[in-house]
């Protein structure tokens, strides 16, 4: 894998009053990889993404994208620079058609300035074909099911032609067939040259598509490494499932040593 760092946070900290929701996080994302970001509920994953994409201002720390310090930039400038994200709670533009929703990304995103409205709509059609939603382009967003709304979020972000894409729980609430489809989509996006950070609770997806995993707990880094390492790390299992589960697993392993 290419080891060039495309995105980096240095000591990113976000306080809400006296509470550190994100505390001194250093993260490096390498160009071309799929990095998984996991952690129990309330670990600060979404706050972390909000802080580094300009939705919130960090209390301390720096955010560097392609060698440029973008700390505290407003969200729209971050978006135009080539970073896109989806939202855990989907944010479709309900009063607009699917095609118009996606065209907004093509109009204002990374290469938006070079496009006319018509070209943006054509780009939207292209992206909709890519995510296999072409047949729904003239539907209003409020006619879509949750699985399609999640995919619309993805299409809107992709239309921005980002170099780096943050996906915040795009699989939550999907059934297993839809999860398979979403995993395939993520691989396809990555293969097209987009670096990805995916926040996910679906471990099958984390194990299946990521190259590396970063674990957040109580707003700080708990572990990072390959998916196998991290998902078998007792500290990670403990954070997710509690002390007792780790104990039981240890006893089970002792009872049935190396087959």
């Amino acid at each position: 894998m290419n080891q060039e760092v495309i995105f980096e946070t240095q000591g990113i900290t976000k306080y809400f009053g006296g509470l550190a929701a994100v505390d001194n996080v250093d993260m490096k994302i390498h160009k071309g990889e799929i990095l998984g970001l996991i952690g129990p509920n309330g670990a600060g994953k979404t706050t972390f993404v909000n802080t580094i994409t300009g939705m919130l201002r960090p209390t301390r720390g720096r955010v560097i994208f392609k060698g440029q310090d973008i700390t505290g930039w407003p969200a729209y400038r971050v978006g135009r620079l080539g970073i896109a994200r989806t939202f855990q709670i989907v944010k479709p533009f309900l009063g607009m058609t699917v095609r118009e929703n996606v065209a907004v990304g093509a109009m204002f995103g990374h290469k938006g300035k070079t496009r006319t409205t018509r070209q943006a709509l054509e780009k939207a059609d292209e992206v909709l074909e890519f995510v296999e939603m072409g047949h729904l382009r003239n539907h209003f967003a409020d006619q879509l099911t949750l699985a399609y709304l999640k995919r619309l979020e993805l299409a809107k972000a992709l239309a921005m032609e980002p170099e780096l894409l943050f996906l915040d729980e795009v699989m939550a609430g999907l059934n297993s067939r839809e999860i398979e489809e979403a995993m395939e989509m993520i691989r396809k996006i990555n293969a097209s040259g987009v670096t990805l950070l995916i926040i996910e609770h679906v471990m099958k997806a984390i194990a299946g598509v990521t190259h590396r995993v970063f674990v957040l707990n109580f707003g700080t880094e708990l572990a990072q490494g390959s998916p196998e390492e991290v998902l078998n790390d007792p500290r990670v299992i403990q954070a997710y499932l509690g002390e007792k589960f780790v104990e039981r697993q240890r006893r089970m392993q002792q009872a049935s040593p190396q087959q």
């Binding site: 939705m55 969200a75 978006g79 009063g95 607009m96 118009e100 990304g105 409205t117 943006a120």
Partner: peptide, 24 residues
């Protein structure tokens, strides 16, 4: 028919999403 119009609709429907998609 223009980008300005699309930006208004996007803001009306979801201002945070609009911001994140590059709309000033």
């Amino acid at each position: 028919k223009r980008k300005l119009g699309y930006s208004w609709l996007a803001i009306r429907e979801d201002e945070d999403a609009a911001k994140m998609m590059g709309i000033n």
